[in-house]
Design a protein around this nucleic acid. Structure first.
Length: 489
RNA sequence: GCCCUCAUCGUCUAGCCGGCCCAGGACGCCACCCUUUCAAGGUGGAGAUCAGGGGUUCGAAUCCCCUUGGGGGCACCA
């Protein structure tokens, strides 16, 4: 039996995770679940300066919102912990020391200023940029002198000077880098923290990660990792570099493209099911026609083989459509349950709380197929809750009618409706539909006037159902108010 | 500048171990139907000489080469 699959999502707590990061998490999670493997969450907080307060919480919240549960990691623990790199510093120091002692790494005393000047000079001369290896060649005396000056050194890894570093990528195939294009990169910073390269290699090994599935931007540093694995005597994991998610301008998706935070989508009324489905389709496909894929199906069918190679633009429009699909698929109960809190939050303060769950439940089927996001609900439903409707009285006057005829029509409608025994959609329709003919106007004209009177809007859910839910009292009051508006200019 | 990488409708993509593809689906867009408005739904349409050029082959979106274009990387950031 093959070894159990162990994959990880390894974000750094530098802000709210964006959709690209989470897509990486999703792919790892799907793969783990598909293979009956283990999904590990590891926090890569080795950059003290970039650490952002609350970022870890945002990461956990994002994953939880999307239903991406981790088998090992923060808050759940596991046999390979701790899962936060700042708590594993000794491990990296030890690895770095071993490398130095074994001749695979060395201390470097070059100042940041010198490195910067070196890079500028290289750029000016249109030379490839990279560390010039000065400290690799220090003799005993120079080394002792630098040490004596008390300069805190960094540790650099000795990349081979010639030859090649090839590796297999599950998505790209074989990728080869010429070693002469590689420089001696830093593995341990002067503050004692490791860089990503060292920390991720050490941890992936210690945590027995079998597949490193990460964003494509890591492809070019993979030869470093390959060399590190070899020097450390570690067995290498399999690599899979995921295509990048792009903004509309085809550059890597970032804040400047607008809404990229996963939590933002949560807060603006997107469903995690829809988000997950949409993200899964960004770089992966099931076949030539399936778009809406339930989570269990995603797990059942997910495979690395069907991950594409080209970057994909994040399409807000398609996400919105997908979200609408999921909203329409929901049960009335479930949807009402999700709408209620957004209403509580977004409706004007004048509307008394708490809102009636029963009432919301009654309205829900009227708006269900009109929602793209949950955030669409409040403006679509507010007239169900407001006491006074605000609208310009001209809205009442439908095309082909004037003030007077509209007023008369509304008066007639009010009369019919007030006399009704049973207040229901069918009975309202029974009495109002014939009225249009009697008034010699089109149904659209009559109904349009009533709609504005009763909802304050030209576009609203079906009239009779709406009136039925609103109730006799509200409807007759609103009809009277509308007539009043037309009388007093 | 150097290294790596990618390339099918505006977008996401299927097809890519060659013929079933003068390229299929979806989003968006446009019509029409349904209809009391708005949606939803239905039907249809526009939209890709498969980046371009060379090969290989009876036959190429599919294989090879080159070019072009895009993207990513080139930190004591991840």
């Amino acid at each position: 039996m093959a070894r159990q699959v162990r994959v990880r999502f390894a974000p750094s707590p530098t802000g709210e995770p964006h959709v690209g990061n989470i897509r990486t998490a999703l792919f790892n999670w799907l793969y783990a679940r598909h293979m009956g493997g283990v999904f590990i969450l590891r926090i890569e907080d080795t950059d003290v300066a970039r650490k952002v307060e609350g970022a870890l919480e945002a990461i956990l919240a994002s994953l939880r919102w999307l239903g991406l549960d981790w088998d090992e990691g923060p808050e759940v623990g596991g046999p390979y912990g701790p899962y936060v790199q700042s708590q594993r510093l000794k491990l990296y120091e030890e690895a770095a020391r071993k490398l130095v002692e074994g001749g695979d790494a060395y201390h470097c005393y070059c100042s940041p200023q010198r490195l910067q000047e070196m890079r500028e000079e290289q750029t000016r001369r249109k030379q490839p940029t990279g560390y010039d290896r000065r400290c690799r060649h220090l003799d005993e005396g120079e080394r002792a002198r630098a040490k004596a000056q008390g300069i805190p050194p960094v540790v650099r890894f000795k990349m081979p000077l010639d030859g090649q570093t090839p590796f297999d990528d599950l998505i790209r195939g074989e990728v080869t880098f010429a070693n002469e294009t590689q420089d001696d990169f830093v593995i341990l910073k002067s503050d004692g923290y490791p860089t990503y390269h060292l920390a991720s290699v050490v941890d992936d090994h210690l945590m027995e990660i079998t597949h490193v599935m990460r964003a494509d931007e890591w492809l070019s540093s993979t030869p470093r990792h390959v060399r590190l694995y070899d020097a450390l005597g570690y067995e290498k994991p399999l690599f899979a570099h995921l295509p990048i998610i792009l903004g509309p301008d085809r550059s890597k998706l970032s804040k400047r493209h607008g809404a990229v935070s996963v939590l933002h989508y949560r807060d603006t009324g997107y469903l995690p099911e829809a988000m997950g489905n949409f993200l899964a389709l960004l770089g992966w496909s099931l076949d030539d026609h399936t778009e809406v894929i339930p989570r269990e199906e995603l797990i059942r069918h997910f495979s690395i083989e069907r991950i594409g190679k080209a970057g994909a633009i994040f399409s807000q429009e398609k996400l919105a459509w997908m979200n609408g699909m999921y909203i329409r698929q929901m049960s009335q109960e479930a949807l009402a349950g999700r709408i209620l809190p957004t209403l509580e939050e977004a409706l004007p303060a004048a509307v008394s709380r708490p809102l009636s769950g029963e009432y919301v439940h009654a309205i829900t089927p009227l708006v269900q197929e009109r929602l793209k996001t949950l955030a669409d609900a409040p403006p679509l439903m507010d007239f169900f809750f407001l006491e006074e409707l605000e609208y310009p009285h001209e809205e009442l006057v439908q095309k082909g009618l004037d003030r007077d005829s509209t007023r008369k029509a509304l008066e007639a409608a009010l009369g019919r409706v007030a006399a009704l025994d049973a207040w229901s959609a069918p009975s309202l329709e029974d009495v109002l539909r014939p009225l249009a003919g009697e008034l010699e106007m089109k149904t659209g004209q009559l109904f349009g006037a009533i709609r504005v009177a009763v909802t304050g809007q030209r576009a609203a859910p079906p009239l009779f159902e709406t009136m039925a839910v609103l109730g006799r009292d509200r409807c007759t009051r609103r009809l009277r108010a509308a007539i009043e508006r037309l009388v007093s200019r």
